[in-house]
Design a protein around this nucleic acid. Structure first.
Lengths: 378, 378
DNA sequence: TTGTAGGCGTTATCAC
DNA sequence: GTGATAACGCCTACAA
């Protein structure tokens, strides 16, 4: 028999307090408390021995572990904020999250796609620990859809963020108003006079990307004379992400005068590509991102973007799972949409304002405008 | 009796396969396998019923839950990378992490300090779930030191990152070579001719900050004629962090010609403060940060900084806890130091190079150089 | 090779 | 009010 780190149990307290273990359980649960005498003895013994309940046991008994599986990495600012929201709500409800995501192995630029085939293993790590529900980020939900059955078939509540699963999974979802955001961007650019616009879209498999794209394209199409050329960004790692498509858009013979990037990360690449080709933002090109990531306001010029309530989205997702865990009968799936807000900054300007500099500084800048263009570290 | 979501147990498989539950346990454990016939029946039944082991039960039996408590938020790039490292190592070892940190409640700029008094609750959430060990980030380790006793007194392995706990806790730690980094920065600045330098230090309670500071100050002091003026950055939220001290340093009568900021986050604030006072980097002021955060190379000019192997630090921390969980007898605490590397970029320049512009562009820039200085969003 | 029985720490249901 | 006792799902002797 190997040594195991055994902690104080109710049995020990029972002996110490001179009562039965069952009594200890009742007293500690705070229910139909016995005599003051007994209660005091039990509580004192528990305190003295630094007793702590064993939630594992409670878990196998009650079927509730008070643990939620969260499959979302601290990928960028947006997702970090989401994780904060989830954390805070779960914590307040005395729950805890097990954070997992697609394995990535090795340092350096992170692969958005999982290279290994162990998605199932990851899912099982959660199921084997009997989590009460799971929250999934879009990449995981879409890539591993074949395995999500593992959750739903076991009646585990599933909540996705920024992604919609097929109805059969009966999953809840939390979105921001992607369609509204896409239309707002279109309206903004159209109002500035732009008619030849480009869109750097997210993956067609991602619901958030599709919604932003179709809303944007639709709104542009409704304006007579306006056209939109869309390219889908690739899913390279952090440093190559979307840069090829950004260059492609800017190298077009009839180059768009405005670009809507489906995320701030993509937008940053457009800054890079524009600097390479000496295209000035916003004089020669208006640019809009999406998310209002932490760096958006610090780009030069500051990026016009659509702000999503990342923290709140995390909160809502957590609230949805928690609600499901308390349910006796399964209700209809819920699809929440949280409001977005267009944040207009310096990266968008009226069409044909080319010769007007923004700050009144007469010198046109022909050096790279985005910090970090020069990648040659010394 | 309330409905609980019960999953397939070995008992069910036993019935299904016409054997005893104990046999099922043995077969599934892969040990001293019985007859091929029996084994096949059991395995098939298990597969058909989609059986999954219950690690909670295994946990209470073996004393190992294969769960590690990680008290570190996805605070910034550095910590996100650390979390990636931890995740990958734990995952490969078929473990899982419960991520918790100081509660923060509410969106917006994050408080580095926990406002609430529920540190103990957080710790207990881990203990009650019988994690096999914990990894702590410095802010947590230092702020809640009074409560860390909860872990050590229960014989739970504790590993800190970037922080050293008193010896009584017998905790392991993972650092990067802070002293080496501090000296390297000093040497770099001295070599560039700077003699009047400033240091924007981290909290005196944080080991990483103390090490960087004393190494830097020590190396400066060794150079005849060189002096260092140090101010300690305050711990406001994300937007106010250290900005006051940055301004303070730049407003000194005998303003330093070079500043070493204890973190890239602080350094970014120096960019802001310098821009406000029309102090040019690196012409008027050389600046060095610490960490090589993701934004460091994208600042303008790109920030000279000390790169830490964030991902590896996470890996090492995870490896340390895992090693402890397998230990039979407790060994001496280990203190790992991982190598750092000075990354020289555009934010540092030789003293008295004031009139030479860096890029050969004759026009001195008097507009804010750091993106995002202009905070007036439309 | 396989089955029986005891135990892990707790909750819940009974008796007393 | 309090104490047995039977679960919960699994492991591990030990017995057959």
């Amino acid at each position: 028999m190997h040594e195991i780190r055994r902690q104080i149990s109710q049995k020990v307290i029972a002996v110490e307090a001179g009562v039965s273990q069952a009594t200890v359980s009742l007293v500690l649960a705070g229910r139909d408390v016995g005599s003051d005498q007994t209660r005091k003895q039990v509580l004192e013994a528990a305190k003295r021995l630094r007793y702590r309940p064993n939630l594992l046991v409670q878990g196998i008994q009650t079927g509730k572990t008070r643990m939620i599986g969260v499959m979302a990495p601290p990928y960028d600012f947006f997702w970090s904020e989401v994780l904060y929201g989830i954390h805070d709500v779960l914590t307040n409800a005395d729950h805890v999250s097990i954070n997992l995501w697609a394995a990535h192995r090795g340092p350096g630029p992170r692969q958005r796609n999982s290279p290994s085939g162990d998605e199932l293993e990851q899912i099982h790590r959660l199921i084997d620990r009997r989590v009460d529900g799971v929250i999934l980020w879009p990449a995981f939900a879409s890539m591993f859809m074949a395995h999500i059955h593992e959750f739903s078939s076991r009646n585990l509540p599933v909540v996705t963020i920024d992604h919609e699963l097929p109805a059969e999974f009966r999953a809840d979802s939390v979105f921001s108003e992607d369609a509204r955001g896409g239309r707002a961007v279109a309206a903004h650019l159209l109002a500035l006079g732009h008619r030849n616009v480009g869109h750097l879209a997210g993956a067609a498999a991602a619901t958030w990307a599709v919604r932003r794209r179709s809303a944007f394209e639709g709104a542009i199409a409704e304006c007579p004379g306006a056209t939109c050329f869309t390219v889908e960004a690739d899913h390279g790692d952090d440093t190559t992400l979307a840069i090829k498509q950004a260059r492609e858009l800017l190298a077009m013979p009839d180059r768009p005068t405005a670009i809507f990037a489906a995320s701030d990360l993509y937008a940053k690449q457009v800054y890079h590509a524009a600097a390479e080709q000496k295209i000035r933002i916003p004089q020669d090109l208006s640019l809009v991102g999406y998310s209002d990531d932490d760096f958006a306001a610090e780009l030069f010029p500051p990026l016009t973007t659509v702000r999503q309530p990342a923290y709140d989205m995390g909160c809502k997702a957590a609230e949805l799972v928690l609600a499901r865990t308390k349910e006796v009968v399964r209700r209809e799936p819920q699809n929440l949409k949280l409001p977005v807000e267009l944040v207009v900054r310096g990266s968008t300007a009226p069409l044909n304002a080319s010769r007007n500099t923004v700050s009144g500084n007469g010198t046109a800048r022909n050096t790279p405008v985005l910090n970090g263009i020069s990648r040659n570290d010394g």
